[in-house]
Measured scan of single mutants.
Amino acid sequence: TGEEYIAVGDSTAQQVGDLTFKKGEILLVIEKKPDGWWIAKDAKGNEGLVPRTYLEPYS
């Protein structure tokens, strides 16, 4: 379980453990880390770190 967020920009994984996503994708945020990198899952079930500045709450 988690909260749904929509990507407001494209982000390409810079290192192992990062999640690549495109603008408009809905991501499920699993954990919000205080350093600004959140753990999220995409629609295909891929999981990784995403920069919170690229996400907005999805409603």
Rank of each mutant, 00 (worst) to 15 (best):
E31Y: 13
L55W: 01
A13E: 09
G36A: 04
S59A: 11
E47W: 12
Y5K: 01
Y58Q: 05
N46T: 07
G9N: 14
G45L: 03
T20P: 09
D42V: 02
K33W: 07
I39N: 04
A13V: 08
Y5D: 00
T12N: 13
W38S: 01
Y58H: 08
D35R: 03
V29R: 00
I39Q: 05
S11M: 14
T53C: 14
G24Y: 04
E3P: 05
G2S: 09
K22G: 05
V16D: 12
K33M: 09
L19E: 00
E31S: 11
Y54Q: 13
V8L: 13
Q14Y: 12
A7W: 07
L27Q: 00
K32F: 06
T20D: 07
K23W: 05
L19T: 01
E56N: 06
V16K: 12
G2D: 07
V16G: 09
E31L: 14
F21Y: 05
S59K: 12
P57G: 04
G48C: 04
L49F: 12
D35C: 09
E31F: 14
K41H: 06
K22Q: 07
A40Q: 01
A40D: 00
D35E: 06
T12M: 12
S11C: 15
Y58I: 10
G9V: 15
G17M: 06
G17R: 06
T12V: 13
T20M: 09
G9M: 15
Y5T: 01
T12S: 10
E47D: 04
E31C: 13
I39G: 02
T20V: 12
G24P: 01
K33P: 07
Q15D: 10
Y54R: 09
A7G: 02
D35M: 04
P34V: 09
I39W: 13
K23Q: 07
E4W: 15
T1S: 12
D10P: 06
Y5E: 00
N46K: 07
Y5P: 01
G9T: 15
G45P: 00
E47Y: 14
G36Y: 04
A40G: 03
T12R: 11
W37G: 05
A43D: 08
D18P: 06
T12K: 12
Y5L: 01
P51S: 13
G48L: 04
Q15L: 10
K32I: 05
L19W: 02
I6E: 03
G48D: 01
R52T: 07
G17Q: 06
E4K: 14
K33C: 14
A13D: 10
N46W: 04
D10E: 07
G36V: 03
I30S: 04
G45C: 05
E3F: 09
R52I: 08
Q14M: 13
K41Q: 10
V50W: 02
V29A: 02
T53Y: 12
D42A: 03
L49R: 15
D10F: 05
S59T: 12
P57W: 06
F21L: 04
V16Y: 10
A7H: 02
I39M: 10
I26R: 06
P57D: 04
G9F: 15
K23R: 11
E25C: 07
L27A: 00
L55C: 04
G17I: 05
G24K: 02
E3R: 10
D18E: 15
S59N: 13
A40I: 07
A13R: 15
Y5F: 08
K32E: 04
K32Y: 05
A13G: 13
Q14F: 12
K22W: 07
D35A: 04
G9A: 15
G17Y: 07
E56Y: 08
E56I: 14
G17H: 06
I39V: 13
G9Y: 15
E4F: 15
I30D: 00
K32T: 04
G9R: 15
V50A: 06
I39F: 11
Q15S: 12
N46A: 07
T12L: 12
S11G: 08
G9Q: 15
D18R: 15
G24V: 01
L55A: 01
G48A: 03
S11P: 04
K33N: 11
T20N: 09
T12I: 13
R52A: 15
F21G: 00
T12H: 12
P51I: 08
V50E: 01
Y54D: 07
G17N: 06
I30E: 02
K22F: 09
Q15I: 10
Q14D: 10
E25F: 05
L55R: 01
E31H: 12
A40H: 00
K44I: 08
T53H: 14
I6A: 04
E31A: 11
V8K: 10
K33I: 06
V50F: 01
E3L: 09
W38F: 06
E56S: 09
I26P: 02
G45S: 03
Q15A: 12
R52W: 13
W38E: 00
V16F: 13
S11D: 03
V8F: 04
T53D: 14
P34N: 11
G2F: 14
L49E: 05
L55M: 06
V50K: 00
G45Q: 03
G48P: 00
A40P: 00
D35V: 03
V50T: 03
D35I: 03
L27C: 03
D10M: 04
G9K: 15
G17V: 05
I30M: 09
L28A: 04
A40E: 00
G36T: 03
L28N: 06
P34D: 12
L27R: 00
K41C: 07
T1W: 13
E25H: 06
Q15H: 13
I6W: 05
E25G: 03
E4H: 14
K41Y: 07
E47G: 04
G17E: 05
V29P: 00
A13H: 10
W37D: 05
E47T: 14
K44E: 10
E56D: 05
K44S: 11
F21D: 00
K22M: 08
D42R: 02
Y54E: 08
I39A: 04
L19P: 01
W37A: 07
V16A: 12
I30K: 05
V16S: 11
V50D: 02
G24A: 03
I6Q: 06
K32Q: 06
I39P: 00
A40K: 01
G2M: 11
L49C: 08
Y54W: 09
G2P: 12
I6D: 01
N46L: 07
S59P: 11
P57F: 07
T1A: 13
E47I: 15
G36S: 04
E3N: 08
F21H: 00
Q15C: 14
V50L: 04
P57H: 06
E31Q: 11
D35Y: 05
G2K: 08
T53F: 11
V16R: 10
P57R: 09
G45K: 02
D42F: 02
T53S: 14
Y58D: 03
G24L: 03
E47P: 04
K22N: 07
G45M: 03
K41G: 02
I39R: 12
G45R: 02
S11Q: 12
E56H: 09
D42T: 05
P57C: 06
L27F: 06
I30A: 02
A13P: 10
T1R: 13
P51Y: 15
G24S: 03
W38G: 01
Q14A: 12
E4G: 05
E31G: 08
G2E: 08
K33Q: 08
Y5G: 01
E4L: 15
Q14S: 12
S59D: 12
L28M: 10
R52N: 13
N46Y: 06
Q15K: 14
A43R: 11
I6S: 03
G17C: 07
K33F: 11
E3H: 08
G17F: 06
G36M: 05
F21I: 07
R52F: 14
A40S: 03
V29F: 01
V50G: 01
K23L: 06
L49W: 10
G2H: 11
L28H: 07
P57I: 07
Q15F: 11
I26H: 05
G2C: 14
L28E: 05
K23A: 08
G48Y: 05
I6P: 01
W38Y: 06
G36H: 04
P51F: 15
L19I: 05
E4Y: 15
E25K: 02
S59R: 10
Y5N: 01
L55Q: 01
N46Q: 09
T1D: 11
P34I: 09
I30T: 07
K44L: 12
T20F: 09
P57S: 06
K23T: 08
D35L: 04
W37T: 09
K44W: 14
L28W: 14
L27N: 00
T53I: 13
